[in-house]
């Protein structure tokens, strides 16, 4: 079946089984390997992308669900060679070790700050509860979210 996707502003037509996961299509059809596989069952958040404004686990999202929708992945956050404030904040704080969880953490944070520009600590923890960092960098990730919040409030928002 032909699926029409808009990923990071570009249109694609994909010929695959409609039940194939969006993650598989992103990684192995489109070569967008910034979205990571960590579990394949929606439990770790490494594969998080944004579909029409909401964060989604691409590993448990059938590609047919994204048909004719806008998908944003980590590769699509930069604008005119400038990092998104959430990317910049993660970089500034160095909120990672192996960084395998980082794409998913950033995408989830982008969605969080879009729906709730000034979350409490408890709200951040709750929103990111589905994202695993096995290296244990949670304290720095919290710092990064806070920093991104400030940067976006100061006008870097979009």
């Amino acid at each position: 079946m032909a699926i029409e996707l808009n990923v990071n502003g570009r249109n694609y037509t994909i010929d695959t089984d409609p039940d194939t996961s969006l993650l598989t299509v992103l990684r192995y059809h489109l070569g967008l390997t910034g979205s990571k596989y960590g579990c394949g069952e929606g439990e770790c958040g490494a594969c998080t992308v944004i579909i029409n404004g909401y964060s989604r686990r691409s590993c448990i999202t059938p590609v047919s669900y994204a048909h004719k929708k806008q998908v944003t992945t980590i590769e699509g956050l930069e604008r005119d060679g400038k990092l998104h404030p959430v990317q910049q904040a993660f970089l500034d704080v160095e909120a990672f070790q192996c960084a395998y969880c980082t794409s998913g953490m950033i995408m989830t944070t982008v969605a969080l700050l879009r729906s709730n520009p000034h979350p409490t600590d408890a709200q951040i923890a709750e929103f990111l509860q589905g994202n695993i960092c096995r290296c244990g960098t949670y304290p720095r990730i919290l710092d990064a979210v806070r920093r991104a919040e400030r940067m976006m409030a100061e006008g870097g928002s979009r």
Partner: peptide
């Protein structure tokens, strides 16, 4: 961290990503 920018942009290729 050296090359840190490649981790926040998804550009770094892990073993899982090699093509």
């Amino acid at each position: 961290k050296v090359g840190a920018i490649n981790f926040v942009t998804g550009r770094h290729l892990y073993p899982y990503d090699i093509k």
